[in-house]
Structure formats: structure tokens, C-alpha cells
Design a protein around this nucleic acid. Structure first.
Lengths: 344, 344
DNA sequence: TTGTACGCGTTATCAC
DNA sequence: GTGATAACGCGTACAA
């Protein structure tokens, strides 16, 4: 498994520049002033030899990796692109690397996440990808951690950044009820372990209650934030034809697509027969047919913000314990409105 | 910055078990049989001391990183999700980590990519993110490399995986001409540095020639594979009203969205006035208005395949020098057809 | 089966 | 400013 003995090391640079390794190291890390002459020589040799410091060796010596980790449980979603875009911009601005891992703490078996203190300087943890136990262990060791779309377990002081779910949901349901006179509103909720799900459900219920509409558990169904699952659920709902409804609030835009498809296949008109609204304002929402009325969540900003917090932590600076980014309703056509501008 | 206060090393274990470090190491890695008595003693001491092997030191000693790298020049695109999905599935199956870097080799040669032999065991390189010089250097050092959507420079034997561009494009243009009688077809091409662009342009030209339609350079415009840029270009084209056209072949689906938006704003009907077709069959294509006729590219499969090749390389196995994945036309509505099934 | 000693590529600590 | 050299923690010939 020995890859290459031809790997160029700091010793090679030193030799070619006719200088000691210590000086080369100092120059690279700007640890101490180096004479102009020597600096230029080293610079040149490094370029010629394509020298790149060996990350692992450096870590062993300094205990720094210059990389941060991101743990998510599912990469296969449009939500991931803007999140990663935000994170990546900050990471590269800080000259760091990004290690991406898909992982989900299992309930029983004691497996370890693939990334941690041994290969990162800090981690971004999305939603419920890491168990409380893992979180606790890392946090207690003072390892820099920032939670995304999830609050820390009790007793643990881990900063988190998420978006305002409840009020926005409340408002969009209000809109459905007050403007479009929809009162039989299906709620396609997400995974129960995810906090967003809870808050969105809360907003949904609050709005109904505020309008004196009793909450019908039959209207609340698991969409799992998945287009496929939402599609199946709505298709079945229509086929059984036992529960009347005239609107669907989908917990996220992905699931809304599935709902839209199922409605279309059943020849139900949107928004004529059924209003549909979503959450996230993902990239494709303005282009759906009809364009989707939804809640705009600043996902790129979430990623950027979380990454910035993490770097503050790594640099031993104080950070806000909790950052709640604002959301806002984006009215398009799927709810029944006819906004002037056709596109985005 | 002291993270691990409890730094108990293999030496401590050896000392407490009254045994040598070598034996402890062998026991841990099951490299050679150890006497029952010794095994039990080591086991006990490791438990008592809460010993955990230091991952980094281990990597330094074995010259392995257990991570592979992915270099792309732009994360901010829907193309990235399926690609990453494919790669990630293989990476985690192999118990490896994935380091993601956005990077683009500058024309001037003074920068190094953030990932390389120093922090990965092999790399996946998308399109033209890395210059020939960087490629050459890595390849000459026998560093495992797999190219995605790009062939290797001459003289370099780097395996690559890409998709069939030319024939599919040829066919979809044929479709536009033969079935829908469109002969003034705009081509929104991608970045000139990207190979996909060239092949798609070739397919476009071949089809026109085969039908005796002269190639009009005015119809070929840079869409840069970007929705925004395509939008501006088509908007301007319509406003100037100097070049008549009745179809648009967009180099990728992203740009097709921009085109669609521009046409819609100008009250041009799709496909009534203008047929629009794309390339990629990205996730949102079936949901556009109208659903987009496009070329389906197996992007997830590309990612999976490239990652598999890379692992073969890492394990010193032989690999195919070039893998060309098939593409196929997906007929929806934007070309003018009216397929039976409404949605995908 | 077990032990000794060296190498992995850097940084840190001294001297000079 | 610069240069030796000792860590860093582990794997592994080579010996025994």
C-alpha cells in the first residue's frame, strides 16, 4: 500500500534551497521572520517541486487539520445544494477544507461517525444526524460544534442556527383560510425526529385553532419530506376518497412536488380544486406548474451563518447560542393567487 | 486549544501490560497471533486506561488517509446533487471519507488545489477544474485519479467516465427537425473549456448538416450552462428581434429554465411558438411548465462509476481507461409532443 | 510468539 | 536569522 516514495517533503525543499527544514517550516507558517533572500529561494523551490505540506504529519505535530466536517443524514435532496453553497463559501474564505459525511446515529449499535476530532477541527451537524450521546461526548471534550436546524440537548451548550418555522407556517395557513377560504387542509409533515417538523405542525395547528377549525388527525399525514412518499400518500388519499380536502400544506417543497404530481394525475386542478403550498422555496419552486406558493427559508444563509459560527468557535471567540433566521411567505400561484409577475 | 487532555498512548498500554508496543499494536490490528495470556492483559489495560488509538498517528504511519477527494469548480448547481449522491454511496460503502473542494486552476500557475496526495488517497476531478499541469504532476506520481466529464490530456493515462453527448444531441435535434418541423434552432452552449460543450455542439451541427440546413453562427450563443445567463441572452434575442427562431436547444437543463422564463415573459408560447429542449434531465425537468423534453444523462451513475473506478485504482486493480455512459432522449411536452402520461 | 528500533513529515525547543 | 534535533503516536521490518 506504499503509494509513493517520491513524495516531496519539507526536507527536499530544504535541501534544494540549501537551508534547514526548520527555516522552511518557519517560512511556511510565518512563525518568524526570514531573510528576503531565503524567502524567495524557498518560494521558488516549493513551486518547482510542487511541494505541498503533508496534512496528516502536520496534524500529528500540531493537532490541527485545517478542515471542518459536515454531517448530514441525506445528501439526496435539493435542500442540500444551497446549504452546501453557503458553507462552502465560508470554508474556502477561511482557507479550510470541507469533509462531507452522510451518517445517521443508529438507535442501538454503537457505531462511530466517520468524522470527528481525529480528522476535523470542528463540525457542522445537520438536524438529527448525530445522537445525543455522540453530541454529548464531543461537546464535553470541548470540540467545536455547531448545530443546524436543531437545538442542543438539555445541559449542553452547543450553538445552533435554524429558521423561524412556526410563525411562517401560521401565516401561510392563515392565508389559505382567510384569502382562499380553504378549511380542509392536509398537512404533509416531515420525519418526527426533526425539529422543523414539530414547529411546522405547531404553526399549522395554531392557525386552525385561531380560526376555530377543529384539528382533524386524519388530515395530518407523514410525507417524510420526500417527493415519492408524498406522492404515494396523496394518491392513496384521492383513491380512497374518504377524506375531503381542498388544500395541502406540504412540510417542504420536495414533498409538494409529489403532491402536485398526484393531484395532476387525478385530474384535480391546482389551485382550482386544491390549493397547494410548501416550505423552503427551493430552487425549482418558481418553475413548478403552477408556481408554488411557499415559505422562503434562507438556506444558503443558514449554511453561511453556521460555518461562520464554527470558525468563531475554533478561534475561541464568543458566539450566539442560538441564531434564528427569518422566513417569509412567497406568494405565487398554487395557493390560488394570481401575482402580477409570472416568474420568480 | 488543548482538545485531548487524556492522551494515553500505546506506550502506556504496553508499560502497564508489561509488554512491548509492537505486541500491543499487533493485537489491536490482529496482524499476528498473540498468546492468550497477553491478549487478556492488553485487553484489560486498554479498558482500564480508556485507551483509544490515535487516528492521525496511525494514518501517518500507514501513509493512508482513508479519504478521497472531489474537485469541482462550482457547487451551486443541480447537477451536483445526483453526482454527489452517486459518489457518496460508494465512498461510504468503502468506509471512506469524502473531501469536497471547489477549485479552479487559474491560468497563472501559483496556486495549489486544496486537496491532493497530502490529504487524500485518490481524487475525482470534474470537468476542467484542474489544469493539465496539475493533472500531469499528480498522474506522473502515480496518484490515483479519475476524471469526470473530461478526457485525459494526451500522453496521460487517467481513466475517465463521461456520458455520450454527440449522438444524443444529434437525435434530439433530429426530433426537432423531423417531427416538429423546426429548422431555426438556437443552440445555447456551455463553457468552451468543457468537453461536453464541444460534443453537444458537434451533434447539433451534424444533425443540421444531415438535414441540409446551413449552420448559422448567429444561432449559436453562449448560455454558460447557467439559467441566469441563458435568460438574459434569450431576452435580448427576443427584444432585438433580428434573428428569427422557432426552437431552442439548451446545452443543459439549467439554462433551459432561463430560456423558458424569458420566452414566457415575452408571451411566446412553448411549444406553440417555440420548441425548447435541454440536456441532463435534471430533477426538475419533469415539473417545468411545460415538462421539458431533454436528454437523460445518468449523472448518479456517473458518480457511482467514477468512485468505483477510483477505489479499484487505490486497490491496484486494472480499470477501463474510458467509460462512456449511455444517454437517451426523454420526450415530454416542451418540444411539441403530447405524451400520454402527464408526469414522470 | 515477542521485542528493538526506526520511519512517517511536521512543528517546537533549544542553542548559536 | 538560522540550524540540529527532539517530540507527535503508531506500524513494522528485522531480530531473537
Amino acid at each position: 500500500m506504499t503509494r509513493k516514495s517520491s513524495s516531496v517533503t519539507i526536507r527536499d525543499v530544504a535541501k534544494h534551497a540549501a537551508i534547514s527544514v526548520a527555516t522552511v517550516s518557519r517560512f511556511i507558517n510565518q512563525k518568524a521572520p526570514v531573510s528576503q533572500d531565503v524567502a524567495e529561494r524557498i518560494q521558488q523551490v516549493m513551486l518547482d517541486l510542487h511541494y505541498v505540506p503533508h496534512a496528516t504529519a502536520r496534524l500529528l505535530a500540531t493537532r490541527q487539520t485545517k478542515t471542518i466536517g459536515l454531517i448530514v443524514h441525506n445528501i439526496h435532496t435539493d435542500f442540500f445544494v444551497p446549504l452546501l453553497t453557503g458553507i462552502e463559501s465560508v470554508v474556502s474564505k477561511n482557507q479550510y477544507n470541507l469533509l462531507v459525511a452522510t451518517y445517521k446515529s443508529p438507535v442501538r449499535r454503537n457505531s462511530q461517525p466517520p468524522i470527528g476530532a481525529h480528522n476535523t477541527d470542528g463540525m457542522l451537524i445537520f438536524a438529527d444526524s448525530l445522537s445525543e450521546e455522540h453530541l454529548t461526548h464531543l461537546s464535553l471534550n470541548d470540540f467545536p460544534l455547531v448545530l443546524i436546524h436543531r437545538t442542543p440537548p438539555a445541559n449542553l451548550k452547543i450553538p445552533c442556527v435554524t429558521v423561524e418555522n412556526k410563525t411562517a407556517t401560521h401565516k401561510i395557513i392563515d392565508h389559505l383560510i382567510e384569502v382562499h377560504n380553504r378549511r380542509a387542509i392536509i398537512f404533509l409533515n416531515g420525519p418526527h425526529e426533526q425539529e422543523d417538523t414539530c414547529w411546522r405542525q405547531q404553526g399549522y395547528c395554531d392557525s386552525l385553532e385561531a380560526h376555530g377549525i377543529p384539528i382533524d388527525q386524519n388530515l395530518i399525514m407523514d410525507g417524510e419530506f420526500s417527493g415519492e412518499i408524498a406522492y404515494e400518500k396523496i394518491k392513496k388519499l384521492i383513491a380512497e376518497n374518504k377524506i375531503p380536502f381542498n388544500a395541502i400544506f406540504s412540510g417542504n417543497d420536495d414533498a409538494a412536488i409529489g403532491a402536485l404530481t398526484a393531484l395532476q394525475e387525478a385530474d384535480l386542478r391546482v389551485p382550482g380544486d386544491v390549493s397547494v403550498v410548501g416550505f423552503d422555496d427551493s430552487r425549482l419552486s418558481p418553475f413548478l406548474n403552477p408556481p408554488l406558493t411557499t415559505v422562503r427559508a434562507p438556506t444558503t444563509e443558514v449554511g453561511r451563518c453556521a460555518a461562520n459560527l464554527l470558525f468563531n468557535l475554533i478561534n475561541n471567540q464568543l458566539v450566539e447560542p442560538i441564531t434564528l433566521l427569518p422566513t417569509e411567505i412567497t406568494i405565487r400561484r398554487s395557493c390560488g393567487c394570481m401575482p402580477a409577475a409570472a416568474a420568480n
